[in-house]
């Protein structure tokens, strides 16, 4: 059998290219995995001298679990409140001639354009004035600024993509707008609502800047916990936390891979 040298060459190039891509993507992440099991590691050794799950055991019994629970609690609250606010507002913006509609849409867009840190630093001053600094409600509110801005646009797009004719039929038969919204539009929007609530949940879980400025020192979610560990050179603890922090995002990536469109993901340029 003769092997075509051209095909061989192409296959080699293809494999080399794939290896390069794998290295670029997983190289930095692999250091997390290695550090997470490194019990003893000092240079000049290229790999840890002693590998084990000692730090995993220690970390899982520590404050990390509290941060994890707290993060999930905050993310759940943020997601529910965001949905409650943005589903009706998105519907109204998609269907009605709302007064000053373009101004309202703009208000929900500009926060994405400007740097968050200087704004959140001043928001923190405000929240402290209302005794909301370093409290869970304060952190929920600051997460909601980011999530509302994002979810209003997504919800408006979701409702715009639902054909209006069915709702017109319901209204012609005498249903009120609210009833039409609840019984026709809302059920049809469920897939879009589910997808965006997953993204909002992830956003809240991963949010760092606002949580650091408003939550510290009492409200420590997982990203802040990881930051503290990494800055304190607890590299094993930080790496394990980083790996745990990646899990929800990776699950979501696999679940939503087919639906990932650039316009829905603008928020993720920020966390």
């Amino acid at each position: 059998m003769k092997v075509n040298p051209g095909a061989m060459g192409r296959a080699t190039v293809k494999i080399a290219f794939l290896a390069l891509v794998l290295f670029v993507i997983f190289g930095p992440l692999s250091s997390l995995a290695i550090w997470s099991v490194a019990e003893k590691w000092y240079w000049p050794y290229a790999l840890p001298q002693q590998v084990g799950l000692f730090y995993w055991g220690r970390v899982l019994g520590s404050d990390l679990m509290r941060s994890l629970q707290l993060g999930f609690f905050i993310a759940t609250a943020v997601t529910m409140l965001t949905l409650l606010c943005t589903v009706p507002v998105g519907y109204a913006l998609a269907r009605f001639d709302v007064l000053f509609k373009s101004v309202i849409m703009m208000l929900f867009l500009l926060p994405q354009a400007f740097p968050q840190l200087p704004v959140f630093a001043n928001a923190a001053v405000l929240l402290y004035k209302f005794d909301l600094g370093a409290t869970i409600p304060g952190v929920v509110l600051i997460h909601m600024v980011g999530s509302l801005v994002y979810a209003v646009w997504i919800m408006t797009a979701v409702f715009k993509s639902i054909p209006v004719e069915m709702e017109e039929a319901a209204i012609n038969l005498g249903a009120s707008r609210i009833k039409t919204f609840l019984t026709i539009a809302l059920p049809l929007a469920v897939p879009g609502i589910v997808a965006s609530s997953l993204l909002v949940f992830l956003y809240s879980l991963d949010e760092f800047t606002g949580t650091l400025l408003i939550g510290a020192p009492f409200v420590v979610t997982l990203p802040v916990f990881m930051y503290n560990a990494s800055m304190g050179y607890e590299l094993q603890v930080a790496s394990i936390t980083a790996l745990l922090l990646m899990i929800p995002g990776m699950v979501l990536l696999v679940l939503l891979e087919r639906y990932l469109k650039a316009e829905y993901l603008s928020m993720f340029g920020r966390i």
Binding site: I25, L32, D206, M226, Y227, A242, M250, L260
Partner: peptide, 13 residues
């Protein structure tokens, strides 16, 4: 993949 890796994790990694 990098899209869903939070900034802090990228920083630490």
């Amino acid at each position: 993949i990098p899209l869903f890796v939070p900034f802090v994790v990228v920083g630490h990694a």
